[in-house]
Simulated scan of single mutants.
Amino acid sequence: MNEQTITLTLPNSIYDRIRSTAQAASITSEEVITQSVSLLLPAFESDIPPNLRFNLTKLPLLNDIQLWKTANSRMNNNQQLRLEELAELQKHRSLTRIEQSELDNLMNEAQQIMLCKAESRRILAQRGHIVFKPIEH
């Protein structure tokens, strides 16, 4: 992977949050910043794995019932529990290579589910559906 180095001046309050997050997650401050920026910015199509790109391109072809099902889908309970277990474990000690690989795979799966859910809701909204209940005051 090609990498670029940048120099960034941050307020102490932000730097303290980065450092605290890094310590809690047992990762470096650089990893916290990289993950934060990665999550904040939209992905380029080339960044999306081919299988996810394929699933996203199929969504507009689904009928509304199928889209609602995708929009409300969830990771299976066993995977969700394992993801939470590994994330909690990572707070207390370094994960083994196998555990880290498993966590990475589960995080990737969760992100793919969330992207498909979001895209399904966007398509449903385009089709005139109310995808989020308005907040009543």
Rank of each mutant, 00 (worst) to 15 (best):
T7Q: 12
N12H: 07
T34S: 13
R19M: 08
S46G: 08
L52E: 12
R17A: 15
L39R: 10
A22T: 00
P11T: 00
R17V: 08
S26K: 11
L56P: 12
D16N: 14
S46T: 09
S20M: 05
A24P: 00
P11Y: 06
P11H: 12
P49H: 14
L52D: 07
S46M: 08
S20P: 00
F44W: 03
R19Q: 11
E30C: 13
P50Q: 01
T21F: 05
N12P: 10
R19K: 09
R53I: 01
R19G: 01
P49Q: 04
P11R: 06
P49C: 13
N12V: 11
N55L: 15
L39V: 01
P42N: 14
L8M: 05
E45I: 00
V37N: 03
I27E: 08
L56R: 01
T57W: 10
E31A: 15
T7P: 01
Y15C: 07
T28W: 06
I33F: 06
I14Y: 11
L8I: 06
F44M: 08
F54K: 14
I14D: 07
Q23H: 09
V37K: 02
D16A: 02
L40R: 12
T57G: 11
S20H: 04
N55A: 15
R53W: 10
D16H: 12
S20R: 06
D16M: 03
E45Y: 07
T28A: 12
N55P: 05
V37E: 09
T7G: 12
Q35I: 01
A43H: 15
